[in-house]
């Protein structure tokens, strides 16, 4: 794609800007900022990736993954601000997911141990894990509030915190997993996944593109399940004290 063609694609930014202005949606400024940010961020990432790919250094790969985990943690922690130590729980979850998935991919030689494979796949894994974390934390903090009486009832009958929080925890884990499972049911029928589309547009064999996409889909299933479950089991003990009493949590209404 030439720069002229890329410049022409800005028409797709102009359309929502004009619609926002015409209908007084008040989204013009945000759309403009989002466009500028995406241009700067993606171009910067393009140059950084070129540098990392050419250097072939594992240190740079690790730094890139660390950067992804840092950004994902920063984004997701706002939704779980009421849970004590949520930043470390998120970091631990993302690191575990990254090590688990890369160990399987590289250990079984499913993908080669090069930056071209490790970084994009890590991006998808950590990104998906971040979205799952946000979905889980959103639901979990809401469930804790709505099922507070049931939780205290189980404690009052002699239940442990794990038993008392079981239902809100399971509901939250299931609710956060549903979008991943449902979207996989219709994949290829309703929409072609972004990575596969990108490969096909770039001229790759569609079957090869499908194979990679399937790899990513299976990977994301594991990511989704492990993220929700791990984050859930790391989070619930902080809701209780050593006397098995439910602690008050402060929910930020704006979140």
């Amino acid at each position: 794609m030439s720069f002229l063609n890329l410049s022409l694609s800005l028409i797709f930014v102009l359309i929502p800007l004009i619609l926002s202005k015409t209908l007084n949606l008040g989204l013009g400024k945000d759309t403009f900022i989002a466009t500028i940010r995406s241009i700067i961020q993606l171009i910067a990432v393009g140059y950084v990736l070129t540098f990392v790919f050419e250097s072939g250094s594992y240190l740079f790969i690790i730094l890139m993954v660390a950067l992804m985990i840092g950004a994902a943690t920063h984004n997701a922690q706002k939704k779980g601000a009421s849970i004590k130590g949520i930043i470390w729980k998120l970091i631990l979850t993302f690191i575990f997911i990254e090590i688990l998935t890369q160990s399987i991919l590289l250990g079984f030689q499913i993908t080669p141990p090069t930056a071209q494979y490790i970084i994009p796949i890590s991006g998808m894994v950590v990104g998906n894990s971040m979205v799952l974390s946000i979905l889980f934390l959103n639901r979990f903090t809401a469930e804790i509030q709505t099922q507070k009486k049931e939780t205290e009832l189980l404690l009052s009958l002699g239940g442990t915190p794990k038993q008392a929080i079981h239902l809100p925890l399971i509901h939250s884990i299931k609710a956060s997993l549903i979008p991943t499972i449902e979207s996989q049911k219709t994949i290829g029928l309703v929409q072609l996944p972004g990575m596969m589309s990108g490969q096909i547009i770039a001229g790759a064999d569609p079957i090869q593109a499908v194979q990679f996409q399937l790899l990513i889909l299976f990977l994301l299933l594991t990511t989704a399940a492990v993220t929700s479950i791990m984050l859930g089991f790391l989070s619930y003990p902080t809701l209780f004290n050593e006397r098995m009493q439910m602690l008050k949590i402060k929910i930020n209404e704006e979140e």
Binding site: K149, L153, L154, L155, S156, L157, G158, M244, Q245
Partner: peptide, 28 residues
Amino acid sequence: PTTLRRTVGIALQDATMLRGSVYKNLAM
């Protein structure tokens, strides 16, 4: 704590129930 709460039982005014049957609640 679990021993304490089994020894000192409490029935509250709002009679909170878990979703499901009477038996499920009694057996809890």
